[in-house]
Design a protein around this nucleic acid. Sequence first.
DNA 1: ATAGGACCTCTAGCTGCTATAGGTTCAAGG
DNA 2: CCTTGAACCTATAGCAGCTAGAGGTCCTAT
Lengths: 140, 140
Amino acid sequence: MGKILSIGALATLTGCKVVTIRYYEQIGMLPEPGRSAGGHRVYDRHHLERLRFIRRARELGFPLKTVRGLLALSERADDAPCAEVDRMAATRLREVRAKIADLRALEATLERLLKQCGHTTLDECRILDAFRGEPVDAGV
Amino acid sequence: MGKILSIGALATLTGCKVVTIRYYEQIGMLPEPGRSAGGHRVYDRHHLERLRFIRRARELGFPLKTVRGLLALSERADDAPCAEVDRMAATRLREVRAKIADLRALEATLERLLKQCGHTTLDECRILDAFRGEPVDAGV
DNA sequence: ATAGGACCTCTAGCTGCTATAGGTTCAAGG
DNA sequence: CCTTGAACCTATAGCAGCTAGAGGTCCTAT
Ligand SMILES: [Zn+2]
Ligand SMILES: [Zn+2]
Ligand SMILES: [Zn+2]
Ligand SMILES: [Zn+2]
C-alpha cells in the first residue's frame, strides 16, 4: 500500500513539473516529504492526492492563496457547511465572467481595427492611427 | 506651444500612474525627459503622445515588447507597407480568442460545479469532490 | 517664511513559475 | 562490482508589469 514515489514520478502522475513541485514545497503548499539515504525526496499517496488537488484547482484559475483555503477546508471534511467553498467558487466564476467580458471588448476592437486597416502604408495605417490619435476612447 | 508637464500632470492626462511612468523610463519605453533646476522631470507634448500610444496599446493587451515594435513602426511612418502592424494585431486577436475559449471552458466547469453542490457539508461538497477525486478530467 | 503636497532615488515585493550552474545519487547494463 | 548517464540535489537569478515603502528634497501658494 505505501507506494513510494520519486519527484519525477510525482511530476509525471500529476502533470506538474519537477521544479514546480519543489517550488510548492518551498512556499508551504506541499508538506516536506521524506528523504532517501542520499537526500532525494520521497513521496507517498498523500502527497500525490494533495498535489492533484492543487493542480485541479489551479487549472480552474484559483490563485494559490485560495487553493490553500480550499485544501484546509477539504482536509477538515467534517459536517460543517460548505458555504465557504461555494463562495470561493462563485467568486472565481464572477472573475472569469468579468475577464470574458473584457476580452470580448478587446476582440471587437481588434476586429474593427483589422477591418479598417487598408493594408497600405505605415503612415496611413488605421491601426497605428488608433494608437496615435487624440484621446478618443478606442471603442470600448 | 512647447507646453511643459510635470510627471503628475502627465499621469493625469494619460491615466498612467506616476510610478509606472518612471518605470517606463527605466526600461527604456519612454525617453529620459528634461529636468527642472531642482531635478524634477519635465515632459513635453512628445512624451505625452508617446505615453498615450503605449497606454492604448497596453489596454488592448499588447505586451510591452510588442508595443516597442509598434512604436518603432509608428515613428517610421513612411510609405513602407503596414503588414507587420497588421500581423501583430492579428496575433493579438488570436491570443484573445484563445483566452476567451479557455475562460469559457472554465466558466462552464465552475457553473456545473456550483449547480451540483448540494450546499450541504464539507465532506459531501461536490466542488471539493471534483478536486479530490480520481484522475477524471474536470469536464473540459 | 512656511506648510504640505508633489517630487526624488533606491530597494524590495508581488504571482507563479522557469532557468540556469555546478554538483551528487540512483539504477540498470556489462 | 563497476560504470555510465539520467535523475536528482541546492542556490541563485530571472521573467512580466508593475506596486509599495522608506527617507529625503523641491515647489508653490498663502
Ligand atoms: Zn503520507
Ligand atoms: Zn495597417
Ligand atoms: Zn520633445
Ligand atoms: Zn458545496
